[in-house]
Design a protein around this nucleic acid. Sequence first.
DNA 1: AAATGTTACAACCGCCAGCTT
DNA 2: GAAGCTGGCGGTTGTAACATT
Length: 329
Amino acid sequence: MGRSPCKELQTGLKKGPWTNEEDQKLVDYIQKHGHGSWRALPKLAGLNRCGKSCRLRWTNYLRPDIKRGKFSSEEEQSILNLHSILGNKWSTIATHLPGRTDNEIKNFWNTHLKKKLIQMGIDPMTHRPRTDVLASLPHLIALTNLAELINYRQNQWDDDSLRMQFRQSEAVQMAKFQNLLLQSTATAAAAVTTQTGYQTEQPADATTVNISQDNNVSMNTTTESRYLPHLEIPLVDSSKQPFVGNNTIHELNEYCSGLSTQLISPNSTQVSVGNNIMKGDPCFANSADYAGSCAIDGKDTTTLSSFWQEIDGDDQFCLDNNFIYEYEY
DNA sequence: AAATGTTACAACCGCCAGCTT
DNA sequence: GAAGCTGGCGGTTGTAACATT
């Protein structure tokens, strides 16, 4: 439906980076007249750009309330918490970070946070420990087979020079396996620790493979002083009773606020009201919305979203498998 | 010093929802 | 109800800056 976006681009309008002069024209116009219709704006402002390009430039870069510079650790933590709940809803996340644009947050996520989580063995999409550590199992099996093969061939070969040649090639293989093991063990260590809570600045165990002069292969586990990056991952609070059974919206809300940084992360929030499944964001909204609070990161006290207004405070709810259901009588 | 690789981020693209005609 | 328009969103790309070889 509708036309293709920014059709004007096909008619010789400028693309690419904005010049200072263009920026100034855009800012001057909007400060005087407001943006009004974005489509009409470029012509009125004397810009050879499409309206969409002007809107993006303004909202992502020129707007006066934009906070520039590096993200603080508080902002970083907020993004992590919010992403664990909302997923790639960058614009929604941006509403909780004053002065930050959705584009900026998205870029920061893709270039920093995503990699950081992967390094820690956390799946950036689910915010849970990665399960692909199991994928390294075949390598471990192959390693065992290789050790057996080495012993077998050692008995077979008497020719010293031939054995030397073999050792060299196998040493390369071993080094590769060792590298693989180090990676998978770090992943597993991160996975284990994150299941029990926050893991920050704690040493990760590492398994090493030793190849002795006579090709004996041994594995031992050492505690290496390799520290994981400082990062707090929101997880289910194991010390807290699971939020199950019938609960009023007030109880649910209280539960949420009690979680502080350890908020249970619903990957997808759905509210079942009668036969209608409503998708939404139960923990975030404007303060004018439902009068209950849901603390995120121990600081950000937000309220339940607008669609919760529809729900009576004494309605019965059940949180099951990260979905919130309302009971109907 | 030059070539090559990597990172960061601004900007673009395609799609969609909501509104109007 | 269909078609068109607009603004918004999320994914992707292009490129400048920086790091490494």
